[in-house]
């Protein structure tokens, strides 16, 4: 790493500084656009007591699901448990602290975190268990609840292409939470399928500008499909 060149060569370097008890923000929706090799490296390092912020928690045996197996996650902030049986078991058994957060609120908490907005009002969740303990305010005749922003010690992101400077483009719906996650990490690490020289990406097409990114690493991806559905 030198100057604006954010490239690192090993996953160990990519996550240098990660310690027990940290908060990790992870991009992805289901298994689509997840930083699968960075997750595998977190498992390899066996750091514990993590707070993980991600829309989902992978599935049994893949994605963030592997961090549940070794009880590395203390607290999970997510919108959907879905079909992850281990997640549901640890949640119902009280072994895992879970803050279920509406998906749009989660995205906005991360966006706000990256944008320096400490909190925002939203109608989402008003009158539901999500509103418990939160400030309610009436604005122009409608009720809103106050939701606080989220930032993390590390943001782990999956991009399609990046240049040395950390400008990132995402591919199709693998974009999802990745740009907001990238903006809200104190240290943001992006793993990509291709690293190109600065100037090769079209400036108007950049999804995540390099200013948000600290480390870029080239990865190889399995890209597992959760629900393969084809037309007859």
């Amino acid at each position: 790493m030198a100057g604006l060149d954010k490239r690192v060569n090993t996953y160990e370097e990519a996550l240098a500084g990660l310690t027990d008890g940290m908060t990790i923000l992870a991009g992805g929706f289901g298994l689509c656009g997840i930083p699968e090799n960075l997750i595998a490296e977190i498992r390899r390092q066996q750091v514990k007591g993590l707070t993980v912020v991600s829309n989902n928690c992978g599935i049994d045996g893949f994605g963030l699901g592997v961090l549940l197996e070794d009880r590395q996650i203390r607290k999970m902030i997510a919108s959907y448990v879905g079909e992850n049986a281990l997640f549901e078991r640890q949640l119902l058994g009280g072994e895992l602290e879970v803050e279920l957060t509406p998906q749009g609120t989660l995205a906005e908490k991360l966006r706000a975190g990256g944008a320096g907005i400490p909190a925002f009002y939203t109608a989402t969740g008003h009158g539901t268990p999500v509103a418990e303990g939160k400030e309610v305010r009436e604005i122009r005749g409608r009720h809103y609840i106050l939701e606080e922003a989220i930032t993390g010690d590390f943001a782990i992101v999956k991009g399609w292409k990046a240049d040395y400077f950390g400008n990132v483009v995402y591919r199709h719906t693998a974009q999802n939470f990745n740009p907001v996650v990238a903006s809200a990490g104190r240290i943001t690490v992006v793993e990509v399928e291709e690293i190109v020289a600065p100037g090769e990406l079209e400036p108007t097409q950049i999804h995540t500008p390099g200013i948000y990114v600290d480390r870029v690493i080239l990865g190889h991806f399995e890209k597992r499909i959760e629900k393969r559905t084809v037309r007859a």
Binding site: N55, G104, P179, R224, K227
Partner: peptide
């Protein structure tokens, strides 16, 4: 694998589609 819907099923995009972040997606919803 990079092209799924909210039900996590593989899909295609139609002519004239657009793709964006989750924050943008919920901005249009909210």
């Amino acid at each position: 694998a990079d092209m799924i819907n909210a039900g996590k099923q593989t899909v295609t995009a139609r002519r004239g589609a657009s793709i964006f972040s989750s924050a943008e997606s919920f901005a249009m919803i909210r």
